[in-house]
Nucleic acid binder design. Structure first.
Length: 210
DNA sequence: AAACTTTCCAACCGCCTTGGA
DNA sequence: CTCCAAGGCGGTTGGAAAGTT
């Protein structure tokens, strides 16, 4: 998952690769006391052998106290699909509409889950279409019972609209914009994640502050 | 149980934009 | 206006973990 730390002698003063717990704590501690921003000088002042960019990324994508970790809920999933249909790969813009989620997370989610599913769906669609001449109007819209009547313990594949709801667009598979339905569902959020949380760090920080 | 394959995501890279000198 | 540094963003990669044979 994480990359191998770069220990090249040429770049010995700039660390790369996965962040250690110690580095995380240094960064959290520094930002807690001094605030974020001016990342290059922050990295130096904090004594981290990281680039400012690396610090910024680590903070924004992982260490910020308001970063929401764990499974993307069905509401979030639907919102991502809706906003992606509207804006395309504007991940940062999409992320602004999902509090606590980062552009990186949404981008990863899209690529690994949604896009993959769409490709599969498109393949199935192709097979289906070759056996059936007619595409019905119903097939060109999202089946709401399929999308909204979902139980969150079911695999995500269950939740996706019929395969005809997607079109190929700009070398990507994108949801057909006009077929998207607003997420009016009251689906239960699934927050039964097992990720370790930075909340522990933050609790510690608050305790240590005077 | 070992070998191989696939999935997932943290982190990097490079390009673009912004703002100050 | 130009230059430069820093920030922001989207695309891509590396490799651990999970799944399959």
């Amino acid at each position: 998952m994480a990359r191998k730390p770069c220990d090249s002698s040429q770049e010995a003063d700039v660390r790369k690769g996965p962040w250690t717990l110690e580095e995380d704590l240094i960064l959290i501690n520094y930002i807690t006391n001094h605030g974020e921003g001016v990342w290059n000088s922050l990295a130096k002042a904090a004594g981290l052998k990281r680039t400012g960019k690396s610090c910024r990324l680590r903070w924004l994508n992982y260490l910020r106290p308001d970063v929401r970790r764990g499974n993307i809920t069905t509401e979030e999933q639907l919102l991502i699909m809706e906003l992606h249909a509207k804006w395309g790969n504007r991940w940062a813009k999409i992320a602004k509409n999902l509090p606590g989620r980062t552009d990186n997370e949404i981008k990863n989610y899209w690529r690994t889950r949604i896009q993959k599913h769409m490709k599969q769906a498109n393949q199935n669609n192709f097979q289906q279409q070759s056996s059936s001449e007619e595409i019905t109007d119903q097939a060109a819209t999202i089946n709401t019972s399929q999308v909204f009547g979902m139980a969150h313990h079911e695999p995500m594949e269950t939740y996706f609209p019929p395969i005809n709801s997607y079109m190929v667009h700009h070398n990507n598979l994108e949801p057909f914009p006009n077929t998207y339905l607003p997420p009016t569902t009251t689906c239960q959020s699934s927050f039964d994640n097992v990720y370790w949380s930075m909340e522990d760090f933050w609790s510690m920080q608050l305790l240590n502050r005077d």
